[in-house]
Nucleic acid binder design. Structure first.
Lengths: 117, 117
DNA sequence: CGAACCTTAACACGTTCGTGGTAGGGTTAA
DNA sequence: TTAACCCTACCACGAACGTGTTAAGGTTCG
């Protein structure tokens, strides 16, 4: 049952001890504690820390983004509210009438051309 | 179908014109545009703005949180990566000798990598 | 034409996030 | 016992978020 102290866990995961405490405070990875209060990182916690770091690196995602996702996952009311809002035909510009839609498309076309040039 | 200018939309939704532009920049509510580039808020956009305001008020959620949720909703790779990470039994303090957990976590990790690759 | 809108770009400022550091004090182990 | 850890609680500081304001210039309409 070997568990690592915070400095050891930091070494093997690439986080700093300071950030390990911060990640815990954000509610993302909470290690076990010894009788005297020392953090004890077991294999599962280490794995979570590594995959978390990978997640942040591969996508442009912040810790607070992941914390929010965790909140959504554990709070059905919040999740339903957010997903309900998103489900209602999202960020695409609405077309209000034919002429406006046309000008929007033309504008988009011009911007595309400009971007290419 | 009538559409409101940005100041009119601001009045009827409770946002400021400045924030309406900011919300658009965040990718959350993009109004139509007139031929000369004026924002035109139709009924759907106004409704989205009102429900968005309600969402931010009822839960302690930031605009960037909702923007991130939108990103997850529209990017399956991101969504799968985040939800995959969260699925591995999250912030509960682990009890130290959990060897059976380990293999589960490793399996999870491999699946994550495979999904991303 | 002129007032009252609209546009984007920029400056400003308080707040939160991410991160490192330090201080004061307990724990562990040679 | 003493060095080397650990803890919490702060201070600091740059970057990003949220928001207002202002500047410079087009658009609309009486």
């Amino acid at each position: 049952m070997e568990a690592l102290t915070i400095h050891e866990a930091a070494s093997t995961t690439g986080w700093s001890p300071r950030m390990l405490r911060y990640v815990e405070q954000a509610g993302l990875v909470a290690p076990a504690r010894s009788a005297s209060g020392y953090r004890l990182y077991g294999a599962a916690a280490l794995q979570r820390l590594r995959t978390l770091k990978e997640l942040l690196g591969q996508f442009d995602v912040s810790l607070s983004d992941v914390a929010f996702a965790a909140r959504m996952a554990s709070d059905p009311a919040l999740r339903d509210a957010v997903q309900g809002w998103l489900a209602a035909e999202a960020s695409r510009p609405e077309h209000v009438n034919a002429e406006d839609w046309l000008s929007f498309e033309q504008d988009k076309h011009e911007k595309l051309l400009a971007a290419v040039a």
